[in-house]
């Protein structure tokens, strides 16, 4: 028995500049992109438990990857996260431990780096989300036991 996550994503109100016939349509930002990254990493870490997970929705709606109106079409920050995380597809999820001090300046909402890792043949795919609103967080990937030689790391 596995879990299907029917619908996930941020759910903001309809942007007033958008025709109200587009239900729940808004312009996703970098904040929503990080919601995608955090959530997709969570799914990767629990790949043994989840049969299906669907972002809501694809176009002109909640947490959309693309926006379109008439002849206009654009992708959103959410789309770019899916584009980056596509490299996990078809891989085998492997255990990843992300250790870092709390990155959030808010004691009410403690957050730190989060991520996931997958493997295909000799190539590992590691994704990490930095929730810090302003600052970069230095990170050093390592492998234990040393099954992989991290000769080439793409960040």
């Amino acid at each position: 028995m596995k879990l299907v996550v029917d619908e996930w994503g941020a759910r903001h109100h309809t942007d007033p500049s958008i025709d109200p016939s587009y239900l729940w349509a808004y312009f996703p930002t970098l904040r929503d992109a990080l919601v995608s990254g955090i959530t997709l990493d969570t799914f990767n870490r629990h790949a043994d438990k989840i049969a299906m997970a669907n972002a809501a929705e694809l176009i002109n709606n909640i947490h959309s990857s693309v926006l379109a109106a008439g002849d206009w079409f654009t992708v959103t920050p959410v789309y770019h996260v899916f584009d980056m995380y596509a490299a996990h597809q078809g891989n085998k999820s492997i255990r990843a431990i992300v250790s870092a001090p709390s990155a959030s300046r808010s004691s009410q909402y403690p957050l730190t780096l989060s991520g996931s890792c997958s493997l295909r043949e000799k190539r590992a795919m590691l994704t990490v989300v930095n929730p810090e609103v302003e600052n970069a967080t230095p990170a050093t990937p390592s492998s234990t036991p040393r099954r992989f030689s991290l000769r080439r790391v793409i960040i």
Partner: peptide
């Protein structure tokens, strides 16, 4: 609003995403 938020609200939404 999707595009109007404070730093605290930035963390709040990401914290909610972590609930998954």
């Amino acid at each position: 609003a999707a595009d109007q938020f404070t730093p605290a609200e930035w963390y709040e939404l990401l914290f909610k995403a972590n609930h998954m």
